[in-house]
Simulated assay, not measured.
Amino acid sequence: MNSNISTNSQISIRNGNKDDLQKMLILFRETIGNVCKNDYTHDQLEAWKSGAENKERWENVICNQFILMAVHHHKIVGFCTLEKGDYIDLLFVHKDYQHQGIASQLYHQIEKEAVRQNKKYLTADVSKTAKSFFERAGFEIIKEQTVNVKGIDLINYKMEKKLTSSAE
């Protein structure tokens, strides 16, 4: 696949690779700690951020998922991953690059990949913080769920979107 998928307002979208892992982990932790702080308690944020310590999980992401990186002046400012062609596992945008259309650019490319793979639905487990973004993208809440991370309960949402082959 073309390594530079699209460019819009100086943000380029490219495929991710194993060399991106450390920067993905930093972005994951920092985004949760800053962007999600109005929706979750300190303990919930700390438990969620601890997911960055699960080496096996992140190696699985790098090896088995379709990964897109948003880059601005050689700096990774966001990423999105697609598991098995129909599950958005991770979608994070740097705290200093919120509300600039980066998540939308990443999502649009991920949806095109799912359609390319002839998937009928996209699903995601979505935080309170990201719920409105996914709703605007056409997802519907299947159910509210409580996940337990290191003894701490967090609320998120199982969401789904029916795809059409004309997702452009």
Results as ranks from 00 to 15, higher is better:
residue 165 S to T: 09
residue 43 D to E: 15
residue 42 H to G: 00
residue 97 Y to A: 04
residue 40 Y to L: 12
residue 12 S to C: 10
residue 135 E to M: 12
residue 137 A to M: 15
residue 85 G to N: 07
residue 4 N to L: 14
residue 47 A to I: 11
residue 125 D to G: 04
residue 59 E to C: 05
residue 61 V to F: 11
residue 25 L to R: 05
residue 106 L to P: 02
residue 59 E to Q: 15
residue 43 D to Y: 11
residue 131 K to M: 10
residue 3 S to R: 09
residue 138 G to P: 03
residue 86 D to R: 01
residue 167 A to H: 10
residue 15 N to I: 03
residue 12 S to K: 14
residue 108 H to D: 07
residue 164 T to E: 09
residue 158 K to W: 05
residue 31 T to P: 00
residue 55 K to M: 12
residue 94 H to G: 04
residue 125 D to R: 09
residue 32 I to D: 02
residue 15 N to H: 08
residue 55 K to G: 06
residue 4 N to H: 15
residue 48 W to H: 13
residue 148 N to S: 14
residue 142 I to M: 13
residue 32 I to R: 05
residue 118 N to F: 13
residue 162 K to P: 01
residue 118 N to I: 10
residue 8 N to C: 02
residue 23 K to Y: 11
residue 62 I to P: 01
residue 145 Q to K: 15
residue 147 V to I: 15
residue 85 G to A: 07
residue 27 L to H: 00
residue 38 N to P: 00
residue 57 R to M: 15
residue 121 Y to S: 07
residue 13 I to S: 01
residue 160 E to S: 06
residue 75 K to R: 13
residue 127 S to Y: 00
residue 140 E to G: 13
residue 33 G to Q: 12
residue 166 S to Y: 13
residue 72 H to M: 12
residue 64 N to A: 04
residue 142 I to A: 04
residue 140 E to H: 11
residue 67 I to R: 06
residue 97 Y to F: 15
residue 107 Y to E: 03
residue 69 M to Q: 03
residue 75 K to Y: 09
residue 39 D to T: 09
residue 64 N to E: 07
residue 2 N to F: 13
residue 121 Y to Q: 13
residue 41 T to M: 03
residue 158 K to Y: 08
residue 67 I to D: 02
residue 106 L to V: 05
residue 18 K to L: 06
residue 68 L to D: 06
residue 21 L to W: 08
residue 150 K to D: 05
residue 87 Y to P: 00
residue 48 W to G: 07
residue 135 E to G: 02
residue 24 M to C: 14
residue 99 H to M: 11
residue 56 E to H: 03
residue 62 I to Y: 02
residue 36 C to G: 04
residue 104 S to Q: 02
residue 15 N to R: 02
residue 22 Q to M: 14
residue 144 E to S: 14
residue 24 M to H: 06
residue 78 G to E: 08
residue 69 M to A: 09
residue 157 Y to S: 03
residue 62 I to A: 00
residue 60 N to A: 07
residue 90 L to S: 05
residue 144 E to Q: 15
residue 24 M to A: 09
residue 39 D to V: 11
residue 18 K to V: 05
residue 104 S to Y: 01
residue 71 V to S: 03
residue 78 G to H: 06
residue 21 L to Q: 10
residue 23 K to D: 14
residue 38 N to Y: 13
residue 122 L to A: 03
residue 164 T to A: 07
residue 52 A to M: 12
residue 11 I to R: 04
residue 128 K to L: 14
residue 26 I to P: 00
residue 42 H to W: 06
residue 31 T to I: 07
residue 163 L to N: 00
residue 23 K to H: 10
residue 33 G to A: 14
residue 28 F to A: 04
residue 61 V to A: 05
residue 108 H to C: 04
residue 44 Q to D: 06
residue 166 S to N: 13
residue 145 Q to A: 09
residue 111 E to N: 07
residue 4 N to D: 13
residue 155 I to N: 03
residue 137 A to C: 13
residue 139 F to H: 01
residue 53 E to S: 11
residue 19 D to L: 14
residue 52 A to F: 10
residue 154 L to M: 12
residue 33 G to D: 10
residue 97 Y to S: 04
residue 66 F to C: 02
residue 144 E to W: 07
residue 163 L to I: 08
residue 10 Q to T: 08
residue 11 I to H: 04
residue 116 R to E: 09
residue 127 S to F: 01
residue 159 M to D: 06
residue 111 E to Q: 15
residue 117 Q to S: 08
residue 93 V to R: 02
residue 100 Q to P: 02
residue 40 Y to F: 10
residue 106 L to Y: 04
residue 123 T to E: 15
residue 103 A to C: 01
residue 7 T to I: 15
